[in-house]
Every structure is written in structure tokens, then in C-alpha cells.
């Protein structure tokens, strides 16, 4: 009986209470190997301080090389699902390029100073500074920083603003909402509840008001955001309890939900995640703001249908299910018919 020895005894009977390491996996032995490398560098460095330069230099080079390796092996930015994604990645690459230059120069100089010949007679020239140099190395980074600052403005406006033709974000005006699909996403501990306005019907006159007062013919779905390729989706982000953050990595989309506020956001879906053979690539929704113990459990998924018709079909199917006056599940889920039953 389960209660004989308490639940823990029953559990321990089959589950080892010891963390299991698979030492043959590279992620387990590489840290040990690197520890050994550090240790031997220390031993060698008693002979020559050049080994310290080697340690710091190799570290800097390895980090750069490792980053490049990750970029080539899909351990990198996820697939992009809209044109903004490409712009964001472009900016990312620009910043990566410029910072890399700075990184290599500074690390190289640092390493050089570690291996340079000490000055003759052991006395360095007492240089206290150089005005021209100071001006130079202030202006050059300032120029690059200005480039970065200006280059990002239009993208930011497009992402957070409500129209796409301004380089400064524009506030939301319900009267001029030009989106194709309205979805209210309500975050709660710990799931996303989506409410779709039926796009076949007349659009709610005031989407902001609609976001807080549901209409009778809205379609309710949990954790699934559906749209179609090329849609302009207006997301009305709300929360009933704490701050959540609606994060869709493939869309480079992240926006906190604030208690007491409805935050309108525009989502462009330029790519479908339905493959030509009908299978679906998994695009996920995650929560990016700590919202309690099960913060990690707020998983959702995005489905971008290939055409508006596909989406409408899904929507009307969902609506039919939602308005069912008969239980269609009743016949279909005889235990023997279920997939698990076949095991």
C-alpha cells in the first residue's frame, strides 16, 4: 500500500536520489579539461609570465571563435517570421560587427602589453597622457555609437509604434486601427487566454473597449495564437493578476502585460509555419517576466496558416466546437479508440 511507508518510500523504491552525470558527454568533461588547462598554465607561469598572456589571450580568442561556431551551428537567433525580424537581425549583426572590431583591438593591445619587452633599465617613460589621443579615442567610438543610435530608430518605431510609415513611434488610435485581425491576449497565472474577434463580422468600433468587454460571438482559445500569412494582427495585451511578458522568439516580439492596462501591439506575420507537406514547425510563446513559481510553464504556440481561408476554416471549426449543443467528443473517445489505448 502506498501509505505503508509514506509516499517517499514508495518513490525512492524506483527513483535514484542521486544526480546522474553522463561523464562521456562533452559538456561534462570539457569544464574539467579546462580546469586542468588553467592549472597547468599556473604551473608553467612560474617559469615565464608569457603564459599569463597566453591564458588571457587564448580565452579571448576562444570566446570569439566559440561565438562564430555557435552562429554557424544554429545556436543563434531563431528563424525569423516577419520582415521586422530581418531588420532586427540586421541591427544585431551591425552591432556585433562594430563591437567585434573594438573587442579584437582592445584584447590584442592588452595581450601585446603582457608580452612586450620591458623598457630598458626597467624604467618606463613617465607619460601622463596625450590630449590628441584622448580626443581621438573619444570621437571614433562616438561616431560609431551615433551610427548605431540612428540606425535603430526606424525599426523601433515600426515595432512598437502603431503605423509603419513613421520613424518615431506613434501612439495607438482606435479610430485608425488598420489591422486585419483582433486578438485579446490575457495573461494569467499561468496561461494565455486568447479571444478572437470574428474577422468575418464587422470590426468592433473601439478595439480598446472590446479588449476589456468581451463580445458574445468572440472565439476563446487557450495558449494558441493563430493568424494567416501576411496578416496584420492587432494584439491587445492584458493581464488579470501580475506582470507577464508575451514573448514570441520567431517574431522578435516581446511586450510586458501590465495589470490595469490594455497594451495594443501590432504583429506582422510574413511567413507561415505550415510546411508544404502540411506539417507544422513549432513556433512557441513564452513568458519573459517572472510571474510566480510556474513562470516557466506559460508555454503557448503560434500557428500562421498559409492563407486567410485556412485561418477562417480553423476559426469556424473552433467556433463550432465552442457553440456545440451536442457532445461530439462523446462517441469519439471510447478508450479503445484513443492512441494511448493502442499501446
Amino acid at each position: 500500500m502506498l501509505l505503508d511507508k509514506g509516499p517517499s518510500a514508495a518513490f525512492e523504491a524506483t527513483e535514484p536520489a542521486v544526480l546522474h552525470f553522463n561523464w562521456s558527454a562533452s559538456e561534462h568533461w570539457i569544464p574539467l579539461a579546462l580546469t586542468a588547462v588553467a592549472f597547468f598554465t599556473w604551473l608553467l607561469a612560474t617559469r615565464s609570465n608569457k603564459y599569463w598572456a597566453a591564458l588571457i589571450g587564448l580565452n579571448a580568442a576562444t570566446l570569439a571563435g566559440y561565438t562564430a561556431w555557435c552562429a554557424c551551428n544554429q545556436l543563434w537567433l531563431p528563424e525569423t517570421a516577419n520582415d521586422l525580424g530581418a531588420e532586427v537581425d540586421g541591427l544585431f549583426n551591425l552591432v556585433l560587427f562594430l563591437t567585434s572590431i573594438f573587442y579584437f583591438i582592445t584584447q590584442a593591445v592588452l595581450i601585446y602589453t603582457m608580452v612586450q619587452k620591458p623598457p630598458a633599465n626597467g624604467r618606463a617613460k613617465p607619460v601622463h597622457g596625450n590630449h590628441t589621443l584622448e580626443i581621438a579615442w573619444m570621437l571614433v567610438p562616438a561616431f560609431f555609437l551615433a551610427v548605431i543610435a540612428i540606425a535603430q530608430l526606424p525599426t523601433w518605431a515600426k515595432m512598437k509604434g502603431q503605423t509603419s510609415d513613421s520613424s518615431i513611434p506613434v501612439g495607438y488610435d482606435p479610430a485608425t486601427d488598420s489591422s486585419d485581425l483582433l486578438v485579446t491576449v490575457t495573461g494569467k497565472q499561468w496561461e494565455w487566454r486568447m479571444r478572437y474577434a470574428d474577422p468575418a463580422k464587422a470590426k468592433p468600433t473601439n478595439p480598446l473597449l472590446w479588449a476589456s468587454t468581451p463580445a458574445a460571438d468572440d472565439v476563446h482559445v487557450v495558449n494558441e495564437l493563430h493568424a494567416w500569412q501576411g496578416a496584420k494582427v492587432r494584439l491587445m495585451l492584458r493581464t488579470t493578476d501580475v506582470i507577464h511578458s508575451f514573448f514570441m522568439p520567431q517574431f522578435r516580439f516581446k511586450q510586458d502585460m501590465l495589470p490595469g492596462k490594455t497594451i495594443p501591439a501590432l504583429l506582422r506575420t510574413d511567413k507561415t509555419n505550415i510546411n508544404s507537406d502540411g506539417t507544422e514547425r513549432c513556433w512557441e510563446i513564452a513568458c519573459a517576466e517572472l510571474c510566480g513559481g510556474n513562470h516557466y510553464r506559460m508555454r503557448g504556440k503560434v500557428v500562421v496558416h498559409a492563407t486567410r481561408e485556412d485561418f477562417m476554416r480553423w476559426l469556424s471549426e473552433t467556433k463550432t466546437k465552442q457553440t456545440a449543443r451536442k457532445d461530439s467528443l462523446a462517441a469519439a473517445t471510447k478508450p479503445s479508440d484513443t492512441p494511448a489505448g493502442k499501446e
Partner: peptide, 22 residues
Amino acid sequence: HQGLDGTSMPSFALLAEEDIQA
């Protein structure tokens, strides 16, 4: 599948159907 709206029971609809049955 649906969770219990208004409570802390979330939806598990994104699991594999076999897992939900299990």
C-alpha cells in the same frame, strides 16, 4: 485540454495527445 478558467488549473492542450490520454 481546456484547463479550468478562473482557477489555477492550466490547459495542457499543447502536450502530445498520447500524453494527455496517459
